[in-house]
Every structure is written in structure tokens, then in C-alpha cells.
Amino acid sequence: MEPLSFFSQTRVLIVTGKGGTGKTTVCGVMANLAAREGLRALVVQVATASDRLEPETANLSHLFGRDEVLGYDEMALVTGPSGGEVRARALRPDTALVEYLHLHGMRRLSRRLVSTGALDVVATAVPGMPDMLVLGKVKQMERAAAAGSPGAPELIFLDAPAAGHAIRFLQSPHGLLEAASGGPVRSQAQEVVDMLSDPDRCQAVLVTTPEETPVSETVETAQLLEDRAGIKLCAVVVNARLPVLPLPEHLESAALSELAAGAGVTLAPSELESLIVAGKLRLERQGAQAAQVVRLAEELPLPQLELPFCFSADLGPDQLSTLTDALGRSVAGWQPVELP
């Protein structure tokens, strides 16, 4: 599939997965690929009622070589060819509540409500309300995108909470529909549910690593997202897969010494040991990861995209570029990426 067609499937891509699997990285890489295709992409990081935004929100900027912590205002991260760009912002329930009150003619009260800890009151009285307000804001941006409003993004990537919390987050408007009999909250919740359940407007991307526990949890999350939140699943991204090296199956020092001698090299015992131990680890990991990718495909019939493991302890612009290339190839082929 052409990347551009991939991105024209919908306007909001909700990216979620188990903690530590690289949701934020995948959001950044996808947005960067979209920008390369000339699209105006916006990454929205959301905090749920109990989240603290710092310091995680600096990770996305870091990927783009910046240090700023994301805030309410949009920040341009990269400008690509033919008008493509990546912008990013963070949304929090308290600011969403203030905006909501402003929009509903309660401007005078809003500051007081927030300063008296009314968010806690509202959250307690109506759980899911803060989350729904954040989703309502996303819906408002999606409407602007649909209308082609000036300055509006064409594609929104929602860096959603980690899997367990994502279900609760995305279920919030459904819960409110049941709880609220009328009024602005109910209509707001209905509009958010309409967006979440319309695949032309919104779909979800699941992120996992090719390891046993993350794969199991991804399969579980996928079912819950469809059943409870009514969201169409678009793809599963297998992140941080070790590139497959054609290593010999049998690693014995005698055979390796002989091969090295053929190239005129005498390997010291410590060198042989290193080659063998490192080779065995890689073979084991490659094998285990391949098995998990197969299991994921069997248990979750979704297109798989793949991003390679980066041999670095940090992800910055270099890794972003490599990963974006890899994602482009993966989208183009819907098949495992071959790396140099």
C-alpha cells in the first residue's frame, strides 16, 4: 500500500500499547512519514485524570532533536517537503475542562472551578468526564481537519495512555452516555462516540514488541478496544524487532577459528568467546521474536507493520530517520522489513 493511501484511511489514528513498547516513538515516526508524504500531521499527547505529564512529554521532542516539553500550544517539530509538517501538543483534563466551560458560557466560573479543585469533584461525581473532555477536544480538532479549516492538521495521531488505561480512557464517553440523561455532557459524549465508531474518522494502531508478554497483552487489548470502545483497528506495529542476521546455526570455536584462519586472522580465545556468546544471544532472540510475530499474526488478524530495533540506548533524529524509512518500506509492502 502506498503510504499516502495508508494515511488517507482515516483522520485520527489512536496509538496505544503496553507501557514501554514505544507508543510515543511510533507516533513520532508515523507522523514523520505522513509529513514526508506532504501531509500536515499533528501528534496529540493526552494525560488522563491521574497522569502527570512531565517528564514523558519531552520524549517526543527529543526524537525530533528538540528539548522542549510539550504544552497546550502546538509546537512545530519538523517541516517536510510540499507543505508536510509535524506539529505536536499536549492535552490535559484541566485545560480541557476550562475550554469546555468557556464554550458553554461558563467562562466566569471556569477559573474558580479549577482553582477550587473542582476537577477532582467533577471527576469523582462523573468518572470519565475528564477523559471525555480530552476526547471532546480531539473530536473538535478532527472536525476542523474534516472541514479543512485554515491551520488545521490533515491527520491527527493520538498518543494514548498505555493499554490498561487506554480502554478506560476510550470507554469514557460510552459510560457517560449511560450515566447522563441529557444536557451538554450527553451530547458531547454522543459526538465523541460517533467519532470513535466511524472508521473514516478514527482508527486505532496497536504497538507491541515481539516478546511474549507484550504480544499477549496486545491481543487482549485489541479485543477490548473493539468490543468496549467500538474502535476499528487499523494495524499492529511490531516495534524494536532485531534485524535478522544470517548467522550460522552451529557456533563452535574450532570451526570459527578455521574460517578466521582462512581470512588470515588468528582469533584469541576471548575474541572467539565474544563472537560465540553474542551470536548465541542473537540467534535465541531472533528465533524467539520470529515465533512471537507468528503467534501475533495467528491470534490477531491485522496488518502488521514492523520497526527495527535501534542499536542505541537513545532515540534522536538519526534513529527517527532510519525508523521512518523502515516504516515507509513496511507500509509499502505490508511485510517484514529487510535491513542492511
Binding site: L245, L259, A260, A263, E271, L275, V277, A278, L281, R282
Partner: peptide
Amino acid sequence: YAPLSAGAQNRLADGPLAPLVANLEQLE
């Protein structure tokens, strides 16, 4: 891991041992 000597690394970089050498380099 104990690294390979620079000489060994260079001379093994494209022979039958190349993938093993590359692997060690990546993991290191």
C-alpha cells in the same frame, strides 16, 4: 563482550564470519 582487535574486525568484515562480526559490533 570483549571486543575483537581492530585488525581482526577489518579482515573479517566481509567473509563468511561477517554476520557474526556485525552482530558482535551491534551488541557491543
